[in-house]
Every structure is written in structure tokens, then in C-alpha cells.
């Protein structure tokens, strides 16, 4: 569903790109892990897939159409949903309001359905009372679960996560990764996770390492 075609990216120095001549395909119903040294350009790569930035050369196709043509705002709105290391929730809202807002902005099929949002939160162990508290009063693990539930509630088929477990303990990490795996397995989404934890990478269907400006598959 996502096709990376010959892309390259650099910040200041054209002669020293973070990566170049990258050709990859990501498919629905599968989970992918991207590992690599710090500063190798994993987050940068993810931001290109998420439509937050444009590659310097080459193009990214979503379902056969260049995401530039779809329009990056529209692409982010309809086709991709993002999970960050720092949860990226609206801090002035409750967990429930966060879900309602995200569904409204993305025009999700369950938009406006409070019961559905409460049900989804219950599935990840957040009861109704907790769901109505300001998200800043939730634990890190709870907040990240809200962020993952948000990707469940939105219809986007592509889910990208940048170090989603970076701030979590082992138990929470396991839970979050399982939830993300479940997105691929039962919702048929394409899940791409950037991580530096080998354990997390192990749980994904396919693993890539960003090394020497190239993505190499690990068997």
C-alpha cells in the first residue's frame, strides 16, 4: 500500500544525505520495525512516510498515488495516523475528548460516537472515570494507550509510531506493542514502528535497519 520510490533526504549537506536511493514497499496487515543508530535518520524517514515533510528526491506512493498529489494535509487527515514517543495528546482535554476530537478532525466513521470511544478505551484498560480525567493526570502508559486507541478510532490504514515505548516500563511496553500488532492483525492496517529496543523489533513481522544510508532487511 505504501511504496517508497528512490527517495533521498538531507538537511544541510547535499553531499552527505541521511539516506538515498531508498526503495521499499510496506503492506497492509503487516507490522514493520525500523531500527538504527541514534542520529541515523529514522525519525526523518518516518516523517516522510507520515507526510510531515517531503523527500528531497524520489516519491512516496500511497495506494499507487503520489502523496504529494493527494496533498500532505489531506493525506495526514485521511490515510495516516501517528503515535509519538511523547504521546502527542491534547493536554487540555480528557482521554475521551482527545478521541472525540481526533475522530471529528479526521472525519472518522465513528465520529461523534461517545459510546464507541468509551468502549475502545475500556478495551485497553482505561475505565470511564479515568477517561474523563484530564490526560495530564494519566500515567505515561495510560497516555500512550490513549494515543494508540486514537489510531484505532481513526480510519487511516497506515499507522506510524516513533519510539512509542521510549518512555514506558517493560510491562507497558509489551502492552503497547501488542496493541500495535493487533492493529495490523485484526484491523488490517499497515503498522511501521521506529524503535531502538531489539525486543520490540522482534515482535514485528518485518525488521529494517537503517545503516550506511540504506535500509537493510534483517532475517
Amino acid at each position: 500500500m505504501i511504496e517508497i520510490k528512490d527517495i533521498a533526504y538531507w538537511y544541510e549537506n547535499k553531499d552527505n544525505p541521511l539516506f538515498e536511493n531508498v526503495n521499499l514497499v510496506f503492506e497492509k496487515g503487516k507490522s514493520y520495525a525500523i531500527v538504527g543508530r541514534s542520529g541515523s535518520g529514522k525519525t526523518t524517514f518516518l516523517s516522510l512516510i507520515a507526510g510531515l515533510d517531503k523527500p528531497k528526491s524520489g516519491e512516496i506512493l500511497y495506494e499507487g498515488e503520489a502523496i504529494n498529489r493527494i496533498g500532505l494535509t489531506r493525506y495526514r487527515n485521511k490515510d495516516v495516523s501517528i503515535v509519538f514517543q511523547s504521546y502527542n495528546l491534547f493536554t487540555y482535554m480528557s482521554a475521551l475528548e482527545n478521541l472525540m476530537t481526533a475522530m471529528a478532525i479526521t472525519g472518522a466513521s465513528h465520529s461523534g460516537d461517545r459510546e464507541y470511544a468509551i468502549e475502545m478505551l475500556k478495551k485497553v484498560g482505561i475505565d470511564e472515570e479515568t477517561a474523563k480525567k484530564n490526560v495530564q493526570h494519566l500515567s505515561g502508559g495510560q497516555q500512550q494507550r490513549v494515543a494508540v486507541v486514537r489510531t484505532m478510532c481513526c480510519d487511516a490504514l497506515l499507522v506510524v509510531a516513533d519510539e512509542p515505548t521510549g518512555n514506558l516500563d517493560e510491562a507497558n511496553t509489551k502492552e503497547i506493542i501488542e496493541l500495535l500488532q493487533d492493529l495490523a492483525k485484526s484491523q488490517g492496517k499497515c503498522v511501521i514502528i521506529v524503535t531502538h529496543e531489539p525486543d520490540v523489533a522482534q515482535m514485528c513481522d518485518v525488521q529494517y535497519v537503517l545503516k550506511d544510508r540504506q535500509f537493510q532487511m534483517i532475517d
Binding site: 493525506y75 495526514r76 495516523s81 501517528i82 495528546l89 491534547f90 493536554t91 487540555y92 481526533a102 478532525i105
Partner: peptide, 14 residues
Amino acid sequence: RYEIGVLLSLGEKR
């Protein structure tokens, strides 16, 4: 800025 970034990442129009 953070909040605005979240909005934009959700594809909200500027």
C-alpha cells in the same frame, strides 16, 4: 506549538 503540531499531524487545516 506542540498542540498545533498535534493538530497538524492529524491533518487539521491551518
